[in-house]
Design a binder for these strands. Structure first.
Lengths: 130, 130
DNA sequence: ATCTAATAGTTAGTATGCTAATCATGAGGC
DNA sequence: GCCTCATGATTAGCATACTAACTATTAGAT
């Protein structure tokens, strides 16, 4: 999948993590931007990981950072350029997703999702105890 | 799983890739060592990736490199220390594997394996065409 | 009011794996 | 014999994500 992504996204010079991050912002932003922490939780990565990606996107002009309600929390939101980038990239991304699951029935996919959820919950539990 | 591995393997200062590589060597070695290329294929990583890991293991004294039948191909095999390390680490590794699939029936797991194989073959195909 | 906890974010270091470029050697064709 | 191509391996650079350690700020307890 990573290889497929790189193929389709070569012309946009947008990495997978950057794309995921932009999608996260547009999904969560309700008009006032979103904090890096919320975004990290949503994307299942550490704050530290997100921090670096977000900085790159800000530097590239696809995201803006504004001060939030207090001095330690910020707010990220899409710029015009960021919105445009998403408009251009969402189609190849959906194509890749379709391509990936082609040939697999809904039942099979749902089954697989259930297994993955089980594994995640189970491992997280073992982790906490261990 | 990565977190679980790190927990169990902390005392051995052996990374996951290093452990996998040692296991690969003991599985493939039929007495004369194994070439890095064979090993890389077996582990589904690029030769370049394996090269770095193998160098680290050689430097640590867990593997040795010997010249092979011709001057460009080498042979990797376990040292005594490497064998000892595997003996010490194989138990926690198997424990982790057991722990991971605990609560999942054989049917479910086989089903999942089939799905993953399908995905891999399918994506590889799309890759070549695209 | 002050000391301590928790929260938000960043930086640094590490692990893993990739591709592209390079070097060295080997094999085949002519 | 020499040129080209294939093979084996390495190095360098990038992407991703982690933990640990740090700065800064806020909130809560006494």
């Amino acid at each position: 999948m990573a290889a497929g992504f790189d193929q389709r996204f070569a012309e946009f010079t947008l990495t997978q993590a950057q794309f995921r991050t932009l999608v996260g912002v547009i999904m969560l932003d309700r008009g006032e931007g979103i904090t890096p922490s919320e975004l990290a939780d949503h994307l299942f990565v550490e704050r530290a990981t997100l921090s670096v990606v977000a900085q790159a996107l800000v530097k590239r002009g696809l995201l803006v950072r504004r001060p939030g309600e207090n001095r330690r929390s910020h707010r990220l939101s899409l710029t015009e350029a960021g919105t445009l980038m998403l408009q251009q990239t969402i189609t190849p991304a959906l194509e890749l997703a379709d391509e990936t699951v082609k040939g697999l029935s809904k039942d099979i996919l749902q089954n697989m999702l259930a297994v993955l959820n089980h594994l995640e919950a189970h491992l997280r539990l073992a982790q906490k105890k261990g």
